[in-house]
């Protein structure tokens, strides 16, 4: 598994995907942060982290698009699947690699928080809560992206399908208000990534939200292993 994590991270940086994703992430984080400082608005958590929801949703499919599609296209999955490594570890290795790249993106918040700390005493609890929330959200999106990538041989298809899924996730709350049936509304609300994320940037670290995101991760990574195995056992 270590070998796969190392290789994937290396590939992210040689193919420039890591730089592009990080640059976009830094740009938007920086822009929102500048807004925060310039307009002297409420708090870093509310202003920066709430806005970043959409950005996280839409840049992560770029990170996950090639993880399995490219392996299949180049036939390199043969070396992975004929090596003494279980399918679970292959999937997990790729997931962790993408997660580490996202952690590199999140590193931009260290200087930002320090700047805030210079001007005022920030609420550290809130900030940690937000970082956890963003990391969990990203992990869930990465897991979904990996699953989509395992379904196709084309990076482009994986990216487009990933972004479409992101769009759907971001619009779930709109659907809920459009549908008048209470049962469905409740269902959509409980599955809404946005509502769950709101809890975090409101400073609420709830076990239910953490379990929700971790379940999404577990479920989609499991689906990915099933997709890979199904192809082999068909």
């Amino acid at each position: 598994m270590g070998a796969i994590i190392k290789r994937e991270i290396g590939a992210y940086f040689t193919s420039a995907i890591a730089y592009v994703v990080m640059a976009v992430f830094f740009l938007f984080s920086g822009y929102f942060f500048w807004n925060l400082l310039y307009y002297d608005t409420t708090s870093i958590t509310y202003y920066v982290f709430s806005q970043m929801f959409m950005i996280v949703l839409f840049i992560l499919p770029i990170l996950t698009m090639r993880l399995f599609s490219e392996e299949k296209k180049q036939r390199t999955d043969q070396i992975l699947l004929t090596s003494p490594v279980s399918v679970w570890k292959i999937v997990l290795g790729k997931f962790i690699a993408a997660d580490i790249i996202f952690l590199c993106c999140m590193a931009i918040y260290i200087p930002m928080v320090l700047v805030v700390n210079y001007f005022a005493a920030p609420n550290w609890g809130m900030i940690v809560c937000n970082l956890i929330g963003m990391f969990l959200l990203a992990s869930a999106i990465i897991a979904i992206g990996i699953f989509i990538s395992s379904l196709t041989e084309s990076q482009i298809v994986a990216a487009v399908a990933g972004i479409a899924t992101a769009l759907f996730i971001s619009m779930m709350d709109t659907f809920s208000s459009a549908i008048q049936i209470e049962f469905i509304q409740n269902l959509i609300n409980s599955l809404s990534f946005m509502t769950r994320y709101q809890d975090f940037y409101s400073g609420l670290l709830s076990l239910a939200d953490v379990v929700f995101y971790l379940s999404v991760v577990g479920l989609f990574l499991f689906f990915t292993t099933r997709v890979i195995d199904r192809k082999r056992y068909s």
Partner: peptide, 13 residues
Amino acid sequence: GYLPEIPPLYVDM
């Protein structure tokens, strides 16, 4: 040790 029909090489390495 397996060498498939198309060598499974990561071309960017």
